[in-house]
């Protein structure tokens, strides 16, 4: 059993390793995450700061210390991009995993229990799916948390702003995975090995955990990967509109808000954060696409 499942994953890994595009995208992504989360060390090494303002060195040109110059407040642009990336990339990861978790629970419940439970959950999924996503996200991002009973101090903290975005993007993003998992569960519970497990007296939770989910895990992984890309795009849009990550925290989207005003004099400051978003999202999408063909035995090798 274990040996067989290992070899399946080895096979999948081998298919992925042959896909040069996906592998290249994966390397870019790993490098991007690695760079962003070593921003603090890079700052020390280059003797610059992406956080503190220095009004004596505004709009410094590109040189050996300031790899991308410095911005309107004298902060080093390169390390600031890396710090923005910490927020954008980690929100992408957390919210994508969160969405998949919620979607898996809802989809598996609907597919396993069927009947009335299935109908109610799927109607709810349709309901969420027909939400005008961006407007609702903006409303959710703008909701006054003190009206819900949170303290002023908490509401103003950076952590509240960060986790609020993760939460609302999760809440609106689980529908795809829910449908995938439901479809997989519906077909899997019909199979003999599930029947055998049930005859032996296995509980519903055990059947779902041991027999159903491992067989539905590949579409979940692909959907989670692709979701990461769209989360990063959503977060950047919200922050760009001023309802996402708030200063002094920074993300790629909020960097673009400032840069927009300086477009005529310093266009490059508007190019870098957007290029970072594009690079991250395109790499994620290529990895997702590569995973999809590596996991799908019917897919053709490129």
């Amino acid at each position: 059993m274990t040996e067989a499942s290992v070899s399946v994953w080895q096979l999948r890994w081998r298919r992925l390793a042959r896909d040069r595009v996906a592998l290249g995208a994966l390397s870019v992504l790993v490098l991007l995450y690695g760079l962003c989360f070593s921003a603090a060390w890079i700052e020390v090494w280059l003797d610059v700061t992406g956080v503190d303002t220095d009004l004596m060195s505004r709009f410094d040109p590109i040189d050996a210390r300031h790899w991308l110059g410095s911005d309107e407040a004298g902060r080093d642009e390169f390390t600031r991009i890396l710090r923005g990336g910490q927020i954008s990339l980690s929100i992408g990861l957390f919210a994508a995993i969160g969405s998949s978790f919620v979607g898996t629970v809802i989809g598996a419940t609907a597919g396993y229990f069927r009947g009335r439970v299935d109908m109610v959950l799927m109607r709810f999924t349709d309901f969420m799916l027909a939400m005008p996503a961006l407007p609702v996200l903006i409303i959710l991002a703008a909701i006054d948390l003190t009206k819900l009973g949170f303290s002023q101090d908490f509401v103003r903290s950076g952590a509240a702003g960060y986790w609020r975005i993760v939460l609302i993007v999760t809440l609106l993003g689980w529908t795809t995975v829910a449908r995938l998992v439901r479809a997989a569960t519906l077909s899997l519970v019909e199979r003999e090995f599930v029947l055998a497990a049930r005859a032996q007296g296995a509980s519903s939770l055990r059947i779902l955990w041991v027999h159903v989910l491992p067989n539905a895990v590949t579409p979940i992984i692909v959907a989670t990967t692709l979701r990461m890309g769209s989360v990063i795009l959503t977060e950047s849009a919200l922050s760009f509109l001023g309802v996402g990550i708030q200063p002094p925290s920074t993300s790629w989207g909020s960097m673009l808000t400032n840069a927009q005003e300086l477009m005529a004099s310093n266009p490059l400051l508007a190019v870098y954060p957007g290029a970072a978003i594009l690079m991250a999202v395109i790499a994620i999408n290529f990895v997702g696409d590569g995973l999809q063909s590596a996991f799908d035995p019917r897919a053709d090798p490129h």
Partner: peptide
């Protein structure tokens, strides 16, 4: 196709405004 899916639309708009208008 991938570039189109992955690009933030507001950034694309920003670049176009800079290039074609400014």
């Amino acid at each position: 196709a991938f570039a189109g899916i992955s690009v933030p639309s507001f950034w694309l708009g920003l670049l176009m405004i800079y290039l074609f208008a400014v």
